[in-house]
Simulated assay, not measured.
Amino acid sequence: MSARVPACQLLERQQDNYAALWVIDPPMDSWLVDQSAGVVSGNQGVLNEWAAKGKQAHNPFEIAVGEPLGKEVVLFWPKAHQLGIWWLKWLCEQLPTGTSIEVVGEHQGGIKRVPKILAELGMPCDKRDNARRCSLFVTRSAALELASGNAASESAWQRFEAVGVTLESHPGVFGHGKVDEGTLLMLESLDSCLPNKPLKVLDMGCGDGIVSAWLAQRGHHVTAVDVSAFAIEACKRTLAANGLAGRVLHSDVFSALEGEQFDWIISNPPFHKERDISYGPSQRLISGAPEHLVAGGRLVIVANGFLPYPEHLQRAFQDFQTLADNRRFKVYSAIKPSR
């Protein structure tokens, strides 16, 4: 478990005797796991952490509307404030009107915007505490107006067209509302080197499903995985919007794919965790790829040019090549030796 989180320390100093605390989109913090009865998060790693301690753990898309969470709810404000707005709307749909909701977060993470956002939603706001460069607000769930007959939280979804596919995008998902330059470079590289025969392909870190849909359009058998439940839902919607088939799994890198092998693994792996640079998932992707590739199978990844992926590829595969380099991004390919 990681070191104590400032926002959790601010909560702890309230000295509340929580009886049935539910935490929404929290960081990993040992005190918070022990204090809470359950967690709702889009992050599979967080869900695994709570479940390992015998706590209830759900992603928001598997909870029925109105399913009880309890009367003690704390939302940890995310860096993507549009995602924070989505969580507030989701909580208003989920909780009885007038249920107390605490909202906590770091100043550099945008928590100071919360009073204005609550006012725009017609929700009250009281400031409860301020310390450790964090703030804690208290509000109450409200009955929000429905848009076009849909739940208010549905308004966060954005549909757009790119590379010949229709994409469904959600706040908090990588590249929300646009296509990443590195992904475009990788797709251009794949267009010239993918064989015509159908392959069993793993799209690792699928995001909104642009790579999965692009591959499925070309007849490949796609498995898409992501640590984010929002990405999983977006990828499912993207495939459906294009009338395409594919298997989509909520997985922390290879955790849901034990023993399974693929012809190709394709990825635009993340290197940020909130505001910090983190190579952990990328390193696990590269080091675990040979085990999940058939003999002669190929890993293709795209990355910012400054990232130290060549040394990781060399260590895992003994050899690799650069398929493309536009000075900002590089596309790497590594092949598992045939035996």
Rank of each mutant, 00 (worst) to 15 (best):
D319F: 01
D34I: 13
K197A: 00
L202H: 05
F317C: 05
V33D: 04
I265R: 01
I117Q: 08
D34H: 11
H170Y: 14
R113F: 07
D34L: 04
E93P: 10
L10K: 09
P310H: 05
P281H: 01
L146G: 09
G297S: 06
G280Y: 13
C125Q: 06
E161R: 14
I266S: 03
L313K: 07
N196G: 15
N43T: 08
A295R: 14
L32M: 09
P171F: 04
V165H: 10
N130K: 12
Q261R: 14
Q56F: 10
Q158F: 13
S287L: 06
A316Q: 07
E12G: 11
D126C: 00
L202Q: 05
K330I: 04
D263K: 13
G296K: 01
E260Y: 07
V222F: 01
Y279Q: 06
K336R: 13
P96Q: 08
M28R: 15
P290K: 06
D25W: 12
A216T: 09
W22H: 04
G149I: 12
G243C: 09
L187M: 13
E274W: 02
E258P: 05
M28H: 10
N17V: 14
L293P: 00
V5C: 00
N43V: 12
S141G: 03
L47I: 07
Y18E: 03
A57E: 01
I63G: 00
F262M: 11
R284A: 14
D252K: 15
E311D: 11
L313E: 08
L47A: 05
D191R: 14
L21H: 10
G219E: 11
E154C: 08
T223Y: 02
V39K: 09
L95I: 03
L202V: 05
